[in-house]
Design a protein around this nucleic acid. Structure first.
Lengths: 205, 205, 205, 205
DNA sequence: GATGAATGAGAATTCATTCAT
DNA sequence: TATGAATGAATTCTCATTCAT
């Protein structure tokens, strides 16, 4: 049973987060100032500091929220997969589905990918793909996947997901299935041709 | 016969550009200030403004230099290609070869990809990939390439090149050929599986 | 019931205005910097910008205040006038009376007459004399004044008022009546001798 | 016999002075910077300092030149005067004649009257009017002039000369005689009405 | 003597943050 | 808890002046 005060607090916090998202997209993390965020809000400057200590903290909060939204879905999709195709296809479908419904979040991620890469502390979305990497390695170990270079494959998946995702959003109407099918087909076809790989460290052993 | 003055000017300009590259990588375009660039230099603050009007102008200069370095090579490689495989393979080899020799430039591009995307005025590197896109469309028209979605293919190529490129640079020793082979194989295998595509506008007609 | 905060704001604003007046007199508008104004204050540099955007805006504010102080008095005096002598005499008495009580304001105007002339946007004091000009033309039309060149007469009145005003303030004790009597006598005597005038455009017609 | 070098030196000096006049009119003394003057020139920045130590020094030089142009004429005119009317009329005619032929100089003086007033070191033009003041006192002593307040009369003459002068230059065609006649008539008529005056110090004695 | 780049002090302005109300 | 003005450090940029060429 949340009182009025609790509600106001939530509202204010959300107002700040939303304003921050807006500004981070427009200016990028590096260039935005706390003032910019406050200005995009109806709150007083002092109020900001009742909720966050710095723009950094807001950014973290946004990332955490994002992660909470995307990662579980991707994870669930992969766990459900019975074979390579379901694994790949499911991941792409979920990812494109998600960014189509939450374009703002994707925009934040895209615009600030560099910042997220730099601060390794909370690379939540990336971490989501790290889960993918672990699942990939597991799949390779289990013989479900051919023994390809998992890092390069991961990188390829991420790169393709983000770049196609961006293009997909510029089209009208947005066709997440077509995008997922394209990406899935590329990888399903490509797998067979990939050079089999033995990690350097293992090779040295 | 360049006098001492000319030489000093060139040196200073280069010192600023190099310092800027360094700082743009460390802090990102948005967050770096002109002061940061100056501080990374042995020059006086006022000197900066003898060479550039703003950090923006330095950034443009860097991009222009970058473009001059990468694009012609990629273009030459594509022109030389006799078939799809040479086209793809040559592009990846050249690209990975380049970023291995000029890691600093690649780092600047990576770190500030968002900024470059935002400012469409001098998207030289991106423009390089646009050339690729045109070549792709031409190839599709000529029947060399299957009629796939050129934009999505382009996006995939770019995404894969950058993401694999980044991983490649973290390995020791750097093996550009392995990276290029991986990427090439992925796409050569993938092509065959890609859904054939008719652009929306054409389909409507 | 104004709270403490409101009072502080008023005080700060006044402190800045007063400091600006002081500096504008000492250095002139062109040469004074915002820093100069701040330094003449006990406030922090940033505080200035809570009240004014630039020295220009302070200058405008000062001019507006000045206008509010002088113009209504002069206007009232002229409206009250029953004949030429009262018109002239009343204006001079009021003007000299005023600058004797508000020497700071007069000093600002004197010192920055050129600036005020340049920026025609808020030439409030000058505008006050423009009212005089209109009243003069009206008086000429009505036959109260002889048909002399109203612009030159206006110019003469202004010139005499300011120049005598300045001298008057250097004397001890300040005798506003003597100054007004001198100026009034000069013009009352002079009128009769002035060449009658028909404006060029009318003459051409 | 001036050599080529001497000529260049003169040319440069004049170029700087002319540029300075231009800038002083546009920006006012206070606001103009040495850079502004140099920019209005085709010379290099360092060259400026071969001729003047500061903008102040240029300003002085301009004032000196101005004085050399106006003062002697005014003085000559007054010396020639046989009575009050010739005295007044001659001064105005000469003054208006002069500013009509050398509008640039008058513009400099007008625009920077405040600066000239402030720096009492070289108040050349004003000094010209001081000569007038001395002549006035002499004339009063000799009984040629009625014993009016010489300072106020001086002030009035100066104020009228400058204000009417400014208006005169805005008219087309410029009619210096009409202006001089107006001003002369005003004063000739006014004299008779002026209160006779005994200077405070003398009165106290 | 002319040149124009280098210099660093100084000016305009914005910023993050605090704190009295 | 919300407010928003005050603060002074930090930033951008310009200036006067010097000095090697």
């Amino acid at each position: 049973m949340t009182g009025k005060r609790e509600q106001t607090k939530k509202d204010n916090r959300n107002a700040i987060l939303e304003a921050a998202r807006e500004v981070f997209v427009k200016l990028g993390y590096g260039a935005t100032t706390v003032r910019d965020i406050i200005r995009a809000t109806e709150l007083a400057s002092g109020t900001f500091y009742n909720y966050f200590k710095s723009k950094d903290e807001v950014f973290q909060a946004i990332q955490d929220e994002n992660a909470l939204r995307v990662r579980p879905r991707l994870r669930a999709e992969r766990v459900r997969a019975r074979n390579v195709e379901e694994f790949i296809s499911g991941s792409f479908h979920t990812f494109f589905e998600y960014i189509a419904t939450d374009r703002r979040t994707f925009a934040v991620i895209r615009r600030n990918a560099d910042t997220m890469r730099v601060r390794m502390d909370t690379p939540e979305i990336i971490a989501g793909f790290d889960e993918l990497r672990i699942d990939l390695l597991t799949a390779i170990e289990q013989g479900i996947f051919p023994p390809v270079d998992a890092d390069y494959l991961m990188a390829s998946l991420v790169g393709v997901a983000f770049e196609i995702g961006e293009h997909m959003l510029t089209r009208e109407p947005i066709d997440t299935k077509a995008a997922a099918n394209f990406a899935t087909a590329l990888f399903m076809g490509g797998f067979k041709a990939l050079p089999h790989y033995v990690a350097a460290t293992e090779a040295a052993a």
